Simulated scan of single mutants.
Amino acid sequence: MDKWTDIKERLRHLGGAVKLLADGYELTLKKAHDGKKIFVIVYVNGAVEGKWTETKDEKPVYPEGRFWRPMKRAAYRKKVYAHAKRAFGKKEADRMVTPRVVGVVPTFGTEGAVVAHLKKHFPDLEIKAEEVA
């Protein structure tokens, strides 16, 4: 079994957790819920800080943000496209409704999504050995 399948297995059940080492950071992935949704949250060195969500030119400002999910949003909804096209022209209307990264968030919808993100950006990460008390 490879490390990616092992990570998915450990996160399969609610409350599942796994510790990883990537680029000198310790990542803790935990499957949790908020009463409505089930998600996987990524802690970097045991913390989640709000300032790490900032982006500049669609890239995270802080290095800890690299481990989180990029959140894409458009400035305007698609339903205003026809009006914007008449008012501003096609090129500007296309830019207005095209989604772009506006921040990064520490939650992923599924364990597969977090594994795909880490596999793409950090292929050399390691699963941290469990300490026995």
Rank of each mutant, 00 (worst) to 15 (best):
94 D>G: 02
65 G>C: 07
77 R>V: 09
95 R>Y: 04
76 Y>R: 13
78 K>S: 00
91 K>N: 05
63 P>L: 04
87 A>Y: 15
90 K>Y: 14
68 W>N: 12
81 Y>P: 00
70 P>I: 01
95 R>K: 13
92 E>W: 07
65 G>D: 07
74 A>H: 12
74 A>P: 11
92 E>A: 15
95 R>T: 07
76 Y>M: 15
75 A>P: 08
84 A>T: 00
84 A>E: 01
71 M>C: 06
61 V>E: 08
73 R>I: 03
96 M>G: 03
83 H>G: 02
81 Y>D: 06
69 R>P: 05
85 K>E: 10
85 K>A: 08
65 G>R: 04
63 P>N: 01
85 K>D: 00
91 K>C: 06
75 A>C: 05
92 E>I: 12
91 K>Q: 14
63 P>A: 03
91 K>E: 11
97 V>R: 10
76 Y>V: 12
95 R>D: 07
94 D>A: 09
82 A>T: 10
74 A>G: 09
93 A>H: 10
74 A>T: 13
93 A>S: 08
75 A>V: 07
91 K>W: 05
78 K>D: 03
77 R>H: 07
68 W>F: 15
86 R>V: 05
92 E>S: 07
93 A>V: 06
97 V>Q: 11
85 K>N: 03
60 P>Y: 03
74 A>F: 11
72 K>E: 07
78 K>H: 03
79 K>W: 09
60 P>R: 00
70 P>G: 09
88 F>Q: 13
70 P>H: 07
61 V>D: 07
87 A>V: 14
93 A>G: 04
72 K>L: 04
66 R>L: 14
89 G>N: 15
73 R>M: 08
71 M>N: 00
96 M>D: 11
64 E>K: 00
75 A>F: 13
94 D>M: 06
60 P>H: 08
61 V>R: 13
97 V>W: 07
67 F>Y: 09
97 V>Y: 12
69 R>I: 03
81 Y>I: 01
73 R>Y: 07
71 M>R: 01
90 K>I: 12
79 K>L: 08
84 A>W: 07
82 A>S: 06
77 R>S: 10
67 F>I: 00
62 Y>F: 14
80 V>D: 08
81 Y>M: 02
76 Y>L: 15
62 Y>C: 06
79 K>V: 04
97 V>L: 09
76 Y>C: 14
87 A>H: 13
97 V>A: 14
64 E>M: 09
92 E>N: 04
59 K>A: 11
87 A>S: 14
74 A>S: 15
82 A>N: 01
71 M>E: 01
62 Y>V: 09
72 K>P: 06
66 R>C: 13
75 A>H: 09
77 R>F: 01
94 D>Y: 05
92 E>P: 08
64 E>G: 06
90 K>H: 14
90 K>G: 05
94 D>V: 00
75 A>E: 11
90 K>M: 13
92 E>K: 15
66 R>H: 12
70 P>M: 10
93 A>K: 11
97 V>G: 13
95 R>I: 08
92 E>G: 06
93 A>M: 11
85 K>I: 06
84 A>V: 01
